[in-house]
Amino acid sequence: MSNIFSSGKLTLSRGGSDQYLLNGVKMLDADNQPIKEAEFESRVSNEVARFINNNYSQIVFLAGAGASITGQQDSQSIRGRSMRELTGIIADALDADEKAFSISQMARYSKYKFIDPTSEDFQLENFISAVQSAQPYIAIDKQSKYNKSVSVILETIIRNTSYDYDDRLLKHAQIINILSSRITPPNKLTIATTNYDTLFEEAAARIAYTVMDGFTADIDPHFDPDVFEWNLVKDIPNLATAELEYKKQVINLIKLHGSLTWQFDDEHILRRLPRNLVNSPVMIFPSANKYMQSYTEPYFELFSKFQELINRPNTLLIANGFSFGDTHIAEMVYHAVTHNSGLSLLVSDYSLEGHDARGWKLLEGLKDSGYSIVFLQAVLNKLPRYLEAESNEY
Results as ranks from 00 to 15, higher is better:
Ala67Met: 12
Ala96Tyr: 08
Lys145Cys: 06
Ala63Lys: 01
Ser149Ile: 02
Glu155Cys: 05
Asn160Gly: 05
Ile35Asn: 05
Phe127Gln: 11
Lys36Trp: 01
Phe40Met: 03
Ile35Gln: 02
Glu37Met: 10
Phe61Leu: 13
Ser119Thr: 14
Leu86Gly: 05
Thr156His: 03
Ile35Lys: 08
Gln76Glu: 13
Met106Asn: 10
Glu85Ile: 08
Thr87His: 09
Gln135Cys: 13
Arg108Gly: 01
Gly88Thr: 01
Thr161Glu: 03
Ala63Val: 08
Ala130His: 08
Thr118Ile: 08
Ser144Thr: 14
Phe40Gln: 07
Arg159Ala: 15
Tyr137Cys: 04
Ser119Ala: 14
Asp141Met: 11
Lys148His: 15
Asn53Cys: 06
Tyr112Arg: 05
Glu98His: 08
Ile158Asn: 13
Asn55Lys: 15
Gln135Glu: 15
Leu154Asn: 03
Gln123Ser: 14
Arg43Lys: 14
Ser133Cys: 05
Phe114Tyr: 15
Glu47Arg: 01
Met83Gly: 02
Ala63Pro: 00
Asn126Phe: 11
Asn53Trp: 00
Glu98Leu: 05
Gln143Ile: 13
Asn46His: 07
Ala65Gly: 06
Ser45Phe: 06
Val150Thr: 04
Phe127Trp: 11
Arg81Tyr: 11
Gln76Leu: 14
Thr161Gly: 04
Gly88Met: 01
Ser129Trp: 07
Met83Arg: 02
Asn32Ile: 03
Leu154Pro: 01
Leu62Met: 09
Ala130Lys: 07
Ala63Asn: 02
Phe127Asp: 10
Phe122Tyr: 12
Arg43Cys: 02
Ser45Leu: 10
Ser82Val: 08
Ile157Thr: 03
Gly64His: 06
Gln73Gly: 05
Arg84Asp: 05
Ala93His: 02
Glu41Gly: 00
Ala134Gln: 13
Val150Met: 01
Phe61His: 03
Val44Trp: 03
Val131Ile: 11
Tyr109Ala: 02
Ala91Phe: 00
Phe101Cys: 05
Gln105Cys: 12
Asp97Phe: 06
Ala130Val: 09
Ala91Trp: 02
Val48Gln: 02
Gln105Ala: 14
Lys113Val: 13
Gln135Ser: 15
Leu94Ala: 07
Ser102Lys: 04
Glu85Ser: 07
Glu37Arg: 14
Pro117Gly: 09
Asn46Arg: 10
Ala67Cys: 12
Leu94Tyr: 02
Pro136Trp: 10
Arg81Glu: 04
Ser119Arg: 14
Asp92Phe: 03
Asp97Thr: 10
Arg84Pro: 01
Leu124Ser: 06
Lys148Phe: 11
Phe51Cys: 09
Ala96Leu: 08
Ile59Lys: 06
Ser104Asp: 06
Val60His: 02
Glu85Met: 11
Ala65Pro: 01
Gly71Asn: 05
Ile153Lys: 00
Glu85Ala: 10
Glu120Phe: 13
Asn46Cys: 11
Asp95Ser: 14
Asp92Gln: 09
Gln72Val: 10
Ile153Cys: 04
Lys99Gly: 11
Gln132Tyr: 08
Val48Asn: 01
Arg43Trp: 12
Leu86Thr: 01
Arg43Tyr: 12
Ile138Phe: 10
Pro136Phe: 09
Gly64Ala: 09
Gly71Leu: 04
Ile90Tyr: 00
